[in-house]
Design a protein around this nucleic acid. Structure first.
Length: 348
DNA sequence: AATCACGTCAACCGCGAATAT
DNA sequence: GATATTCGCGGTTGACGTGAT
């Protein structure tokens, strides 16, 4: 006996959401808070299934989402977390609060995978492009291959912006009126952003309010939805100066370092508060089984982390060294930093 | 100018886990 | 404890845009 569908297929609308639908959904969630998705379609009159509503909210309408180009730091985080956790996009997204798992997944599949392949072929022509491991990656890779397809991203961003601009403004108004976003008890705040005009000159208000802790100022200061502001990073220059795909000695060293990093559990360097795990890790630096256990531990941690995500956004938990680094986007000299970290650590 | 191929990404689907009854 | 319901995740699809021919 199969599981019944989440919603009646008859009369359910599919496909892209219209601004009107977005407004209805946002309006409802503002009043009732996210959750109880089952009741959303019936209460709002939206001809969408509950899953679709939830997805639309979590991936696009939820305040605090940053869209548009991924920064080099974000790329690095994704690459390393993917190497560590595998395709646990939700877990990875928990380290990038402004990015959705769907966004990260898409970015990985469309951009980073290719970069890795390209890089691997440059690094070692004998390695088959689709060799299973994706851990042989480094910031150097990012730096050398960065932004080779910026124009496409820019195009996509502006397209998105054009379709959701209204929602963006709508959300801005909401954020101003209800600082405790995503609070399921915020129903007392009945201020309707829909009925309020959101001045365009306050576009930075959406996610800045929530994630001030881990944002650097070099990052996009534009809205959670894409804006016309696009970035031009220095790596582009480096790319040109460095002669395209060729990598320098320094970068090569960095690559090797990251290989080491990925061959051992990150727990070894991060779980100072977990003696047993750390000990086990230290005692078996080359033991893959042990590594798996450690990775599992981290994955479990992520699961727990996800569950408390809603509450986490207002109270930052203690961060491990790794997490601190991951979330510290001001680490402009990340490559050097990581190399130093690994040099200092006997584990590496 | 028309057509084709490719890239991107929003959205859907199916499954498993979590929670409620 | 068993069953039903809901939620969340990851894989995949398909529409759309862009560039090449």
């Amino acid at each position: 006996m199969g599981r019944p569908p989440c919603c009646d297929k008859v009369g359910i609308k599919k496909g892209p959401w219209t601004p009107e639908e977005d407004i209805i959904l946002v309006s409802y969630i503002q009043e009732h808070g996210p959750g109880n998705w089952r009741s959303v379609p019936t209460n709002t009159g939206l001809l969408r299934c509950s899953k679709s509503c939830r997805l639309r909210w979590t991936n696009y309408l939820r305040p605090g989402i940053k869209r548009g180009n991924f920064t080099p730091h974000e790329e690095g985080m994704i690459i390393h977390l993917q190497a560590l956790l595998g395709n646990k996009w939700a877990a990875i997204a928990s380290y990038l609060p402004q990015r959705t798992d769907n966004d990260i997944k898409n970015y990985w599949n469309t951009h980073l995978k290719k970069k890795l392949k390209k890089f691997q072929s440059v690094l070692d022509p004998h390695v088959t492009p689709d060799s299973s491991t994706t851990s042989h990656q480094s910031f150097s890779d990012r730096r050398s291959l960065d932004f080779t397809n910026q124009p496409n991203q820019a195009t996509a961003s502006s397209l998105y912006a054009s379709s959701t601009e209204n929602i963006s403004r709508l959300l801005e108004g909401w954020m101003r009126s209800s600082p405790k976003r995503n609070n399921t008890n915020n129903s007392s705040d009945h201020h309707h952003p829909l009925l309020k005009e959101g001045p365009q000159d306050e576009k930075s208000s959406v996610h800045d309010q929530q994630f001030n802790n881990n944002k650097n100022n070099n990052d996009s200061v534009d809205n959670s939805v894409a804006t016309t502001s696009l970035h031009c990073y220095r790596p582009k220059q480096e790319l040109q100066e460095g002669g395209g795909d060729l990598i320098s000695n320094e970068e090569y060293i960095s690559i090797l370092s990251f290989e080491n990093l990925n061959n051992v559990s990150w727990d070894k360097s991060t779980t100072s508060d977990n003696n047993s795990t750390t000990k086990a890790s230290l005692n078996s630096a080359n033991d893959h089984h042990e590594d798996k256990i450690n990775v599992t531990t981290i994955a479990d941690h992520h699961k727990i982390k996800q569950r408390s995500d809603l509450h986490r956004q207002t109270s930052t938990p203690p961060l491990s060294i790794l997490e601190k680094w991951l979330l510290d986007e001001s680490s402009a000299g990340q490559v050097e930093e990581i190399n130093q970290m690994m040099e200092l650590s006997p584990i590496f």
